[in-house]
Write a protein that binds this DNA or RNA. Sequence first.
DNA 1: CCAATTGGTTGCATTATTAAACTTCGTTGC
DNA 2: GCAACGAAGTTTAATAATGCAACCAATTGG
Lengths: 158, 158
Amino acid sequence: MKRTSLAGDSCPVARALDVFGDWWSLLIIRDASLGRRRFGEFQASLGLAKNILATRLRTLVERGILKTVPASDGSAYQEYVLTPKGHGIFPILVALRQWTEEFDEHPDEIATIMVDRANGKPVKKLALLSQDGRVLGAADTTLKPRPAPKRARRLATA
Amino acid sequence: MKRTSLAGDSCPVARALDVFGDWWSLLIIRDASLGRRRFGEFQASLGLAKNILATRLRTLVERGILKTVPASDGSAYQEYVLTPKGHGIFPILVALRQWTEEFDEHPDEIATIMVDRANGKPVKKLALLSQDGRVLGAADTTLKPRPAPKRARRLATA
DNA sequence: CCAATTGGTTGCATTATTAAACTTCGTTGC
DNA sequence: GCAACGAAGTTTAATAATGCAACCAATTGG
């Protein structure tokens, strides 16, 4: 009886959750995207047990979300930084943030807002656009089977 | 020693995760957004234990993500449908999907793509825009303290 | 060279997840 | 109207994950 893995699932949502869908990983990634890099920084910021942090950091590195680099301050310790794959999680963090901003019962408890660094103005809501530039809601979309990748003009699956 | 709750956290990402950040909730919400409504449908689709499903459905209802409605087929059973607060999670599902599409090691195992219902063409990537319409990446944004809500012209926190 | 800090690991208690058996209706066949 | 069946849970017991505290090794500061 193991905890069920979603790794082989065909749904892309499930596959993403299999990688960082546990209780702490997204918060570690959030911290990393805010510039935190050291074990101690994560531990102080998140207040989670050290053994759990160690496990999470290890699996996030294994899965290519974080990588370890020599410490930036010249010390002999190592630091954890996001890989490109890890930076790609940024829109998910934004979507989570904006959901809370819109639907939370106590929005007054939210400490920060995300702003455009260039002018300090709040960013707009994430927009899902069609090829021709219309804004799409959930009802405007459907799922289709993934088309077979085009393999240099040959019989499909032959 | 309880599982640490993020409910009181001031970070909007943490607050969202506190509501539906566990192993199964987002998959239940995904199923609901695909039109599944019955206990048995969720159970067959997700393959999770029935007691866990029952617990998750209960807390999602408590938290205003789902609501129970009388069965649409006239039977005496009830069904679970998304509230507006639940529908608001859609962009998060899209972001998770697009992350897998971009970064997964085995994209050939992804079964579906999201398309524009109007013309069947794939949707574009979620875009984070500034007030003046520029596309923003993580590096183009910062966090600022939330400005105090304007309360009918009165002394702040007086 | 000694003490404190950093970055873990280990052991144990508590909690969550799982699968399977069981219960309770509602529905269906007759 | 009654027995059989199915849907929707609940209960139980085993296993896995989490949390806390204590311990430990290497690094740093003085």
